[in-house]
Amino acid sequence: MMNGLLYAVLTQTLTFLPLALGISISYTLMRATDMTLEGSFVLGAAIFARLATLGFSPYIAAFCALAAGSLAGVMVSFIQRGGRVDPLLAGVLATFILTSANLILMGRPNISLLSQATLVSSAFAQSDTLGWLSVAFYSIFFCMLGCALVATRFGLRLRALGDNPALLQRLGAPLERYRLLGFAFTNTLAAAAGMLTAQTVGYADINMGFGMTLTGIGAIILGQQVLRRILHSARFRVSAEFIACVIGVAMYFMALNGLLRLNIDPIYLKMLLGILLVIFLRTALRRSALAGGISI
């Protein structure tokens, strides 16, 4: 039973990880709660599923899904351009738009991929282990891409944008360009996670992204607090950000699968998960406050 639980946690963490990293870049680095990410998650899945069922090569379908994700990021950055629309509202509006766009693209609320060729279908046909290794390869590839970006000078500017946009602007930096590129990249990661999820669960569903951003933010904060407790340091490191994502997401899926295995009625699932997350966060924050003087 324990092996089954760990297996489920590992596989779900793998597919969720690019989205978690996207959320981490936008929330922790750019200090923006970009709700569009859950729309882009579905968009990635929807476009991949639609093109795969139309007979396109999985690579072309994957490329289009990623490109669509980045366009969603461009869209949200245009909505909030010049600070005219509140970033949170811009994300909600973009998600509204994407919900309809996803339905139009899919043509129906659910597309099955069980009989379609996907990026990982041939590996899964040979064995489950090979299939999941293939998923791990794609997931880690996208995450490494994300980490590499954060480690560059561009990543430094994204952090500066989140820290003190007014100063960055006074230094003559093109804020809107940074924001646009940042959101384009985070939404591409979200689309990558959506695409991988659709391929592993065998379908794309219009509701598959519901609540993902907030869940992801909760998981990331949890991961960061746990990691700070271990490292006794709040200093920014790309590797630490990534490990925090892994820890947070794994803990979230551990709680989710643990509750499912206890045969909890699905109606109570989100509520119980939310309460668990609150307890984890309160505990972690209280401990780090005691250790590092953070006020709560």
Partner: peptide, 14 residues
């Protein structure tokens, strides 16, 4: 005048 969540060197680099 500073990016407070960043290091001294990162401020200079920017």
């Amino acid at each position: 005048s500073l990016f407070v969540s960043m290091s001294i060197f990162e401020n200079y680099l920017l």
